[in-house]
Design a protein around this nucleic acid. Structure first.
Lengths: 121, 121
DNA sequence: TCGCTGCATAGATGGATGTCAAATTAGAGC
DNA sequence: GCTCTAATTTGACATCCATCTATGCAGCGA
């Protein structure tokens, strides 16, 4: 596994305005869609969930792989998709590879769905 | 368009725990993935953005269609996907159909990405 | 160095998805 | 009833995607 940390992210500038805010540009929409595409698979959601909720904040691929009835290459593929979306990031330590969530990304997404003043007019 | 409001939602019980919280069940993951799949297209994201940020809280399909270089059936298809994900909901008034965002859904998603205590150990 | 294990990549394949043209339904007005 | 317009549905098609098998690569220990 070369350059685990140097993958070019699909969505680098996906930022802060909520969906109920100013109009998304075509480019912003495309970048955001990339992030959501990464989240649009049940296996990847559970992987992210396991990683984000892991003790020490990180999870070993060896543990993740065993949690699904899928082959190791398939899990590896899903982790790569999450990584390219900037949602997780990985590090090799000796024989094993550990992944952790990228908190900035999650916070950013949280803000996306914020509602304005909740105009219950 | 029969029963605009009676479509069975893909994700009915997608709920409240953050991704960094307790383990998602297979079913929860599948439901959530459905919602994100609906968000994983740039056109749908822009549609949702336009609807959520529209004055009066609603947007006419006739306006939405003109904003893209896509045919009306394609826009209609995307609106249906958003509708089935429970993110928007539509109403016919006379000749035109109006869509509005479903705030509970957006709020719910916001909570998904909330971080726990931000353990900056 | 050799073999073993953990993880990633490459290539192939069946199934899902975005798009369009054509046909269909619903309302409004004559 | 007839026609016009708004919106959806249907069916077809090209592309994308999740998964698998086979292969490659990096560490570790003998």
């Amino acid at each position: 596994m070369p350059k685990l940390l140097e993958l070019e992210d699909v969505a680098d500038s996906v930022c802060c305005a909520p969906l109920s805010g100013p109009a998304l540009s075509e480019q912003e929409a495309a970048e955001l869609a990339g992030v959501f595409k990464a989240l649009s698979d049940p296996v990847r959601l559970r992987l992210l969930n396991m990683i984000a909720s892991a003790e020490e904040g990180e999870a070993c691929v060896c543990d993740l792989t065993g949690a699904f009835e899928l082959t190791a290459p398939t899990i590896s593929h899903h982790l790569k998709v999450l990584r390219q979306a900037g949602l997780i990031d990985g590090e090799r330590r000796g024989t094993w590879v550990y992944y952790r969530a990228v908190p900035e990304r999650l916070t950013r997404l949280s803000g996306l769905f914020a509602l304005p003043a909740l105009t219950t007019s």
